[in-house]
Design a protein around this nucleic acid. Structure first.
Length: 398
DNA sequence: CAGACCGGGGTCTGCCATGGCC
DNA sequence: GGCCATGGCAGACCCCGGTCTG
């Protein structure tokens, strides 16, 4: 109610940073600004009294500690909440005397959530019931500046209630949208970012800014020329980067820098390209993967230098767990492919072991000669592979 | 045309720790 | 002294198709 009318504003005084965002979603910067700056009240006056669970007893004066609020528990049970789970998660919420579970349920129903989902959301993130109607309206409207429909938001809530409800700071959310837009991330990038890593938008703007500045520093240190562009590239290549700690990302970059003999410029392009995703790994995991990868490759008669070449050409190999990697390589070798061929075309490692196994079997039936025809046939979409298989079998019939 | 090269796209939470505030 | 907000962590790939080229 409070929020809806602002979307009918047609004044287009666009702030440059959010231009792309609003071009797509046909709203205005003023709308966002009003969402960002309007005061947030703890409890909205328009919630019918009956929808709040109020227990007017002595505990209202000393709400801290004490036993659960029994009427609240009943109310939650009716909503299908797993109270045991909720208590385990956030016990304090169950002792609160003033909550908005009914308002929340009505709100979510109105957005298309099923009763089952409402119960599940509260079970997994009980603090959601402390958010006021106004808070919910405003937060939803802010999310809707990025998402195209209520349904998209509902599916995120189903996935991760915490991402939506953890922060009570709507101004911060609005500032995040403005900040991320100002980096030059367009509407599509923001949509992918909020879909994939919704937590990013609950981070404090300050935390996000720190990561961006850190990435810009990395670019500067490695002799890049457009630091902002580098940060943007890393983010759009690795949508999880903003929910990692700078400590982790820094440790990984330092590790890559000291482990290999590669120039700064090569590292720079690696990090903003296919290597961006390996920054996610925990430092120990990255070390372990590299170590096991080296062991594996060396045990098959190759040099350590080959490993380095492999990683530069296909950094994602470090993302593959040691056991998965090992079984993929073994599977390829067993199918008659040489290690040299794998090192030459490491992209085949990207497909699942199951996929590889299946393709090898089908090709073996047709007597496919990898030595003569190479292994590119394994690096194809399903559709293309099937077409290829069809051609091969036609040829062998003739 | 078939093959090779190359880049893009989907996807990810649920829990614990801690500092600050009421 | 408890609750809230927020930072941080573990976990551990796969697939598709546009377009150039011979």
């Amino acid at each position: 109610m409070v929020i809806h009318h602002v979307f009918f504003l047609t004044t287009m005084t666009l702030v440059p940073g959010v231009r792309a965002l609003f071009c797509l979603h046909r709203t205005s910067a003023r709308a966002l600004r009003s969402l960002v700056t309007s005061p947030s009240y703890l409890f909205s006056g328009d919630i019918p009294r009956g929808l709040c669970t109020i227990t007017p007893d002595a505990s209202e004066l000393k709400p801290l500690a004490g036993p659960d609020n029994e009427p609240l528990l009943e109310s939650l049970t009716v909503l299908g909440v797993d109270v045991k789970k909720a208590r385990q998660r956030q016990p304090g919420v169950l002792r609160k005397v003033s909550t908005n579970e009914q308002g929340l349920a009505n709100f979510l129903h109105g957005k298309g959530a099923s009763p089952r989902l409402v119960g599940s959301i509260i079970s997994r993130y009980p603090r959601a019931i402390t958010r006021s109607g106004q808070h919910l309206e405003r937060r939803w409207a802010l999310w809707r500046t990025i998402f195209r429909s209520d349904n998209e938001i509902i599916s995120i809530l189903d996935r991760s209630p915490e991402s939506f409800f953890r922060s009570s700071d709507n101004d911060n959310l609005g500032m995040n949208i403005v900040f991320l837009s100002s980096l030059g991330l367009n509407a599509k990038d923001l949509h992918r970012l909020l879909t994939t890593a919704p937590r990013t938008f609950s981070n404090s703007v300050e935390l996000n800014r720190q990561m961006v500045e850190f990435l810009e520093d990395v670019s500067a240190e490695l002799g890049g020329d457009d630091h902002r562009q580098f940060a943007k590239a890393v983010i759009s290549r690795n949508l999880y980067i903003l929910i990692r700690s700078t400590k982790r990302v820094k440790a990984n970059i330092d590790f890559l820098r000291t482990s290999f003999n590669i120039s700064d410029s090569v590292l720079l392009s690696l990090l903003q390209g296919t290597g961006a995703e390996i920054l996610d790994l925990s430092n120990d995991y990255l070390r372990r993967n590299l170590k096991r990868l080296q062991e594996k490759v060396v045990s098959l008669g190759c040099q350590k230098a080959d490993v380095e070449k492999l990683i530069i050409c296909y950094p994602s190999v470090l993302f593959i767990g040691p056991d998965t990697l090992s079984s993929k390589v073994d599977c390829l070798l067993k199918g008659g492919i040489s290690m040299a061929q794998i090192l030459e075309k490491p992209k085949v490692l990207e497909y699942s072991t199951q996929n590889i196994t299946q393709r090898l079997e089908e090709l073996a039936k047709l007597g496919y000669d990898f030595e003569r025809s190479g292994i590119n046939v394994l690096d194809m979409s399903r559709k293309r592979f099937d077409a290829k298989l069809e051609r091969l079998s036609r040829m062998s019939e003739e």
